[in-house]
Design a protein around this nucleic acid. Structure first.
Lengths: 133, 133
DNA sequence: GCTTGACCCTGTAGTTGCTACAAGGTGCAT
DNA sequence: ATGCACCTTGTAGCAACTACAGGGTCAAGC
């Protein structure tokens, strides 16, 4: 493998992604096909690493692959009009805010359980209430 | 439908869940089978509504069904030892903290894009960097 | 009281997003 | 030159829905 470039296994290790998943992202056009070595091995750059890391973390946050694609397009598509970027970004922003609020409520309940446990009491668990309507 | 009780469609509307998905959760034992009306319709209670709301929002936050099951068990299983609850809750807590941090970074970048857009400039987009290694 | 339409039922097949092989090639160390 | 860890394509399976098909229920309106 050439200096500065990464094998598919390297990329997998550094992002916590299975090799098969990386090839799957390439197949569906989410991650661009990298250069190949003489022996037909995929040879990735730092850009691929950053992009894959973004994809994985956005997925972990509950965004669908199509939403991830839209977020990546915000970054890629220089031809897109400013107002379009603005609209899409604002949509995602409100979704992100909602998720942060939900996670904070869940966090509070988990924390309650831990502190109650360590002081020996088992008070009523309100974990379901934390994410109820 | 009896007073105070909910049809599967009501439950779907109030939680943003497809009817088929609710039946799927029942089939895999995530949501308990409700009482039936004379006409064999499912008749849900407020408890079902709260539990389903929790499931949907936890799924939206990127937890797997098995993780959701574990979180619900924390609330259900009164026989579980305090130290077990403590361990599981702490694991989930650190994952929740990581997700909050990632969402805040993403939020910051989306916000940057919006403010840049509204003042007419199109500076370099750093959205990918926000969730890079 | 009978029809119409919105809802519900079970069952099964399809989609998304991976994940796990199988069968074989590459490349470096001993 | 022979392991061994890694890579290749291809296909099949799994998780978590999602979308029918084919039929039953029920309240509203004529």
């Amino acid at each position: 493998m050439q200096a500065g470039n990464l094998s598919i296994g390297d990329l997998g290790h550094q992002t916590g992604t299975k090799v098969e998943t990386i090839r799957y992202y390439e197949r569906i056009g989410l991650l661009s096909a990298p250069a190949r070595t003489a022996g037909n091995y995929r040879s990735y750059t730092k850009d691929h690493l950053n992009r894959l890391s973004f994809i994985r973390r956005a997925r972990d946050l509950g965004f669908s692959l199509e939403q991830v694609r839209a977020l990546l397009d915000l970054s890629d598509d220089r031809k897109r009009s400013c107002s379009a970027i603005d609209t899409i970004a604002k949509e995602h922003l409100s979704e992100v805010d909602r998720k942060i609020a939900d996670l904070k409520a869940l966090r509070r309940e988990l924390n309650n359980m831990i502190t109650q446990c360590s002081c020996g009491t088992v008070a009523d668990c309100r974990i379901i209430d934390s994410l109820s309507p």
